[in-house]
Design a protein around this nucleic acid. Structure first.
Lengths: 362, 362
DNA sequence: GTACAGAATATGAACGTTCAAATGAACGTT
DNA sequence: AACGTTCATTTGAACGTTCATATTCTGTAC
């Protein structure tokens, strides 16, 4: 009984000081805990926790007192403790695309925008590298097992993509940038390539062009197919004969591309309107046109794809089809968020419209 | 006593089954814990932990048994529990550089290589975005306080960089890609720009060139200064008069650049050897040369910087100065690792040599 | 004033791991 | 045969949070 009193009137302050001293030695950089904040504000652990996670349960003046203590001590919740207790990680895994090969400014932009977008839903991006698809899939499994990631985003999808199945089986929330034609049903966000090239062709038609060239990749895939279809359908819709559309398969070499373009320019029915699957290749077209004194934007039109930094650099600016990458990233974050909120929510696919950025060349 | 016996011969199996059943309901996707593995292998928690973290303390046959259990159950250590206990996170924070502006293929490659390099030391990259430097610094503080990151890597350094000081104060291990001339002492890795341009000029001298142009950025910074110094010193060393070196300030516009290059080409002492601070701008030079029938690699030489995808694309290949990004990333990982091992280790700066990739244009 | 309901706050337990210390087994030494 | 020593393994505690539940406070109605 008097023991109790001693503990209260005497012991508590002593205890307080003692703990403070005990902490002091490692204090300079040791981070305060929720308990320290509580002690400082004269409340318990849980009240501090409530201030942070459920403020409506706490009296306004208490909130203020606790906030003051938080600011004074510079308290930040320890992620690992929180995540351990709640079973979440607030991390989203993303395999950084393999380096080299193509100039993929889109993917760089995407990663940046994705980082910002997931921050808006209180998450962060956890990067990993992998040489092959099997490694990537194995990694998802591991991240899930370690509860190191709450969700996954992947890009560079392909037909019958193998990634959705294992992720679905593990019940790991995920959204892909790109459809996976034929894979199991899941959430995705993609850009309508057909609409993009249709936009470009219609713009060119409006400017009086009647002879077209589409510059596609050497190894066409489903992405190119759709873009090419957009070109074809827009041309067909304008009752332009199919013979007035030339399809060029670009190589990964400027000299070869230049020759192919030159050959086409020398033909009697040379196109006046060029649409390319990439800005860089559009630059090559510009070069060849200028070499012949053909002024892009006046005598001919050139439209690129992706609005990469190259496009802005190209003297005065290259007209280009821009993919709405910011919107893609934000939509992905929202779809992920929806899956976090309700793991059984219906998967959703979102197809976004690209935009034609009209500059000097077309 | 017989109680004990009961517990062993009878209770243990029962208990085993009971726990197994209790777990069963959430078993399908619930991840097994270290305890489950122990039970399955007939050892304790700690032994499993030792198998994973200090195998030398465990008898080989026990290791085998535990490994089997790990594989059977598909066990992976829970990151948060481990990190909470050990006070580490095995995460390295990196601010993803702001999008747009320049074509920075170097930074993209760097991020990829860094991701791989930190995996080799058992870490992963945690990305974050920030609009300004203050936000970036605040974020480092937060990440440290939350113990969400064990280390930091940052790039795009500048003179008197403000980032080292707060990181040092917080005793947060970090390495910068780039020197911070004038900032507090810390570990860094950088590429010797002087050596890079010297390499290029010496190569051009050996090929008989005597009149040079250096294409630098519109807003020169310390990075350009060093590169330009490399050019100047190599030229001076060859006893070429300084008048035979032309310095061009590139604009962010191809037309303007093209005109500047054309003016120089029309001058009586036009350079025959061109070195550019960027591959893309080197492409512009190539275009202007070809327009005049000057064949790069025969009549003139053009050397770019960074070996970006653009360089490989440029018909047959652009000769270029490549920064050893893989080595940069690996060295950064090692320096970080050293700081993890010994927080009081001396900071080290490492300056790496770039490499000249000789292709068709020079 | 007392009883009661509801709001505000506090307490004990748990998340899954590793650390520190304790126990048990194996093994030569004296 | 008893005794340290070393090696292998186990046990109790702790990391910092949140959940579930218990307790205390506050104001209102009788």
């Amino acid at each position: 009984m008097n023991d109790d009193v001693l503990e209260r009137s005497d012991g508590a302050p002593l205890g307080h000081l003692e703990v403070a001293t005990e902490r002091r030695e490692r204090f300079v950089h040791a981070t305060p805990t929720i308990e320290d904040v509580g002690r400082h504000a004269g409340v318990s652990r849980q009240t501090v926790s409530n201030v942070l996670n459920a403020p409506h349960r706490v009296r306004p003046e208490t909130i203020e007192r606790v906030q003051l203590a938080i600011n004074t001590l510079g308290y930040r919740a320890n992620h690992h403790a929180r995540n351990l207790r709640t079973g979440t990680s607030r991390a989203i895994a993303y395999r950084i695309p393999p380096v080299g090969g193509h100039l993929n400014s889109v993917m760089d932009t995407f990663l940046h925008e994705l980082t910002e977008a997931v921050e808006a839903i209180g998450c962060h991006i956890l990067l990993f590298a992998s040489n092959d698809l099997d490694g990537e899939i194995a990694r998802y499994w591991e991240l899930s097992a370690q509860s190191a990631a709450d969700g996954v985003v992947f890009s560079s999808t392909e037909r019958e993509d193998r990634r959705p199945a294992p992720l679905l089986e593990r019940r790991m929330p995920f959204v892909s940038f790109g459809r996976t034609w034929g894979s199991a049903e899941h959430s995705w966000v993609d850009v309508d390539g057909r609409a993009g090239t249709r936009l470009a062709i219609n713009h060119l038609l409006a400017n009086g062009h009647r002879r077209f060239a589409w510059l596609g990749p050497r190894n066409p895939g489903v992405v190119n197919d759709e873009r090419e279809q957009g070109v074809r359908s827009a041309i067909a819709a304008a009752a332009i004969p199919a013979a007035d559309l030339h399809i060029v398969s670009l190589q990964d070499d400027a000299v070869a591309d230049r020759r192919a373009i030159a050959d086409l320019l020398d033909s009697p029915d040379a196109p006046t309107a060029w649409v390319s699957m990439s800005d860089l290749q559009a630059l090559t077209v510009l070069g060849e046109l200028e070499a012949r004194g053909i002024v892009p934007g006046r005598d001919a039109a050139v439209i690129g794809f992706d609005d990469s930094p190259v496009a802005a650099y190209a003297g005065g600016g290259l007209t280009t089809i821009r993919q709405p990458i910011t919107a893609v990233a934000q939509t992905i974050a929202q779809l992920l968020s929806a899956q976090f909120a309700d793991p059984n929510s219906e998967p959703r696919g979102v197809l976004l419209e690209p935009e034609l950025i009209v500059r000097r060349t077309g």
